[in-house]
Every structure is written in C-alpha cells, then in structure tokens.
C-alpha cells in the first residue's frame, strides 16, 4: 500500500517545498519508489528546488485534462532513479483540481509508488484542501513563531475534519510535526518559541527539527535538495527525519546552541 503523505503548514514560506524535496529524495535514497506532487498550481516551485525545471513538458493539470498521460508528465530524477516528480502548472489556477480527478491520479500512482508526497500550497483554500484530502499522513511544517504555529493549528483542525479519512470516519490522518528554521541561539535569547513550546501548543508527535541554515538557501538556488548536502546541519537533520518516518528512533540533534570554545571566544568567531 502506498503511503500518501501531505506536507502542509497553512502559512507560506515556512519550508514546505524544501522539506518535500528533502523527504522525497531521502526516502528514494533508502530504495523506496517515491513520487513528489506539486499541488501549488499556478505557483510552480518544486521543480526549481529539485533542479528539473527545464525538463517540464507536461504537468499535473495536463494529466487531469487528459492532454497527457501520467508517464509523459512524470519527470524521473537524474540523481535517484526511484524518484519521480509530477510538476504543477504555472499557467492554470487551483480550480483545475477536483476531488474526483485528483483521486483518480493518486489511485493510478499508488499502483507504482511506495510513497506519494503531496507538496501543499499555503493557505486553507481549495488548493490546500485538495492536497490534504486523500492523505494518510501529514507532515505539518512549522516555524518557531506564533503566527506559523497558529496556522499549523488551523491546518491540524482541517486534517481532522475535512479530509477523506475524517469524512468516511476512518482512522485519522497520522500527524507529524516538522519544526523548520530553528535557531537554538535565538530560543535562548527568548526571541523564538522553543521546541517544547510548539509541541505543547500543537500536541502532535515531533518528527524533526531542522536548524536555520545557510545551506538551505544555497540548496534551493542550486536545485540540489539540502538533504544531499551531507555536511550541513540541515542535511543531517533531514536524514534523521527520514529515519523517524521509517520507524526508527533517532535522538534529536541541533536543539542547543553550540558553545563557543575558548579559542573562538579569545580570537572572535
């Protein structure tokens, strides 16, 4: 059975697409067959982060309208062969998607893939609802600041009431909290909510904490998902996320600010 995972947040700019890309590649590297779907119709971004924007011929909406087959639209990743991307359309809007036609495509994909990762658009409108409707699991991406946490809370309410699982009275969507852009130093200075604060407010299991990192911006601009940057904090943190998603227990890293050594303190760091 394919696991349908939605990466969602409510608020924009918190790292949904970055996380989708990292998790997609991470799972594929573990040998799973993975497809990444960009649900942000009209604001196509996932292909950029994945570095395959020049290979987009057909997109999600083309497939829905019957203008192309799934196989024509799916882009195989050049780095990991078991990973495919279904890009969004840049020229249409979110109304192109309906529950019925999205359901059909997911059903089709579920025959070939182990993991279907749905990269949700921001907001709580039709597009975001479509991305989460068929989900079995949800990765709620949140920044450690109040407005992001509030929006994530709203999305969690939607997952519990507006999804297919909720409507059919099935087992609820499995929720995971992914805290991104975390800066232990700023938490210590009281400028940011701590992991404990966020977990307390949202009361869902913590899947990972991704530290604020220069590597993420660099990765986005170069189309190389940050998980491939195995030297970076963010890359390592995403690798931990993959382990946890696959059921392993991994200790959380990067939760405390690095102590400055005596030399850096003396000579400046």
């Amino acid at each position: 059975m394919a696991r349908i995972i939605v990466v969602t947040s409510g608020k924009g700019g918190v790292g949904k697409t970055t996380s989708s890309a990292a998790i997609g590649i991470g799972l594929a590297l573990k040998g799973h067959k993975v497809v990444l779907i960009d649900f942000d119709i009209g604001l196509r971004n996932l292909d950029l982060i994945m570095g395959c924007e020049r290979r987009v011929v057909y997109d999600f909406v083309n497939v829905i309208n019957g203008e192309a087959t799934l196989n024509q639209a799916l882009i195989k990743d050049k780095r990991v062969s078991s990973l495919s991307i279904l890009p969004a359309s840049q020229t249409r809007d979110k109304d192109a998607l309906t529950k019925e036609n999205v359901g059909k495509i997911l059903e089709e994909l579920a025959k070939t893939f182990d993991y279907i990762i749905c990269d949700s658009p921001a907001g709580i409108e039709a597009g975001a609802m479509m991305a989460l409707y068929y989900a079995d699991e949800a990765i709620v991406t949140t920044n450690p600041e109040v407005s992001s946490v509030r929006d994530s809370d709203r999305i969690l309410g939607m997952l519990a009431s507006r999804s297919r699982r909720a409507e059919l009275g099935l087992e609820p969507i499995k929720e995971h909290l992914l805290l991104t852009r975390y800066s232990p130093k700023r938490v210590e200075e009281g400028e940011m909510l701590s992991v404990e604060d966020v977990v307390d407010i949202l009361s869902i299991p913590l899947l990972g904490v991704i530290p604020e990192s220069q590597a993420v911006l660099k990765a986005s601009n170069s189309g190389e998902p940050v998980i491939l940057d195995i030297e970076s904090d963010a890359g390592k943190a995403y690798q931990d996320v993959i382990e946890r998603l696959l059921g392993e227990t991994v200790e959380f890293r990067f939760l405390v600010a690095e102590k400055k050594g005596i030399f850096t303190r003396m000579f400046g760091g």
Binding site: I124, D153, R154, G157, S161, S203
Partner: peptide, 8 residues
C-alpha cells in the same frame, strides 16, 4: 476528546 484547534 482531543484538541480544539484554531478556527474550530
């Protein structure tokens, strides 16, 4: 039973 989420 469970959280009452924002907006509910």
């Amino acid at each position: 039973r469970g959280q009452v989420r924002s907006g509910q």
